[in-house]
Amino acid sequence: MKKLLNVYQSANSIDVALLITRVGVAALMLVHGWPKLEMLFSDGPVQFPAVLGLSATTSLALAVFSEVLCSLLILVGLGTRLATIPLIVTMVVAVFIFHAADPFAKQELGLLYLMPYTVLLLTGSGRYSLDYLLLQKVFKPTYVRTLSIQ
């Protein structure tokens, strides 16, 4: 019971929570973005709203970029903080521009996606990611700490 009420978390539990968040939100967004990718490469006309003065095809391409490519980057934890920015912009546009006049039930999904993307922007990908592995190789310690007993 004490562990459930403890407000201090170990670094490992935070890294596991970030992994679960990253993989979960990325997988869900990939499922959401895959039909858009198929629509973009289909021969039929693009059935997508033109937003912010962009054409329907350009709006769709930007949505596919964020929802598919950026989700794949988040899934593996590569450039996570950068990859969340297009997704945050996409969710803000979806909620506050495209669904602005709609009831809250239509805005809710975009807001629910917006929260973990904001958390990942602030925290990064955590230890279980390609970002972590690459940073370990780039920023190797230049000295070795030794224990001296005198």
Rank of each mutant, 00 (worst) to 15 (best):
M1V: 08
K2F: 12
L4F: 14
L4G: 15
L5W: 11
L5N: 11
N6F: 03
V7N: 10
S10G: 14
S10C: 07
N12A: 11
S13N: 12
I14V: 15
A17E: 10
I20D: 01
I20S: 09
T21W: 00
H32D: 13
W34K: 01
P35M: 03
P35H: 02
P35L: 04
E38L: 14
M39Q: 13
M39D: 08
S42H: 09
V51R: 05
L54H: 12
S55H: 06
A61M: 14
S71R: 02
S71W: 01
L73I: 00
L75D: 10
G79E: 08
R81P: 14
P86G: 02
P86Y: 00
I88P: 11
M91P: 10
M91H: 05
V92R: 00
A94H: 03
F96V: 01
A101I: 00
P103V: 06
F104S: 04
F104H: 06
L109F: 08
Y113F: 15
Y113Q: 00
Y113V: 03
L114D: 09
Y117P: 11
L121A: 14
L121G: 07
L121Y: 04
G126I: 02
S129F: 03
D131V: 10
L133Q: 12
V138T: 13
K140M: 11
T142F: 06
T146M: 10
S148P: 08
Q150G: 14
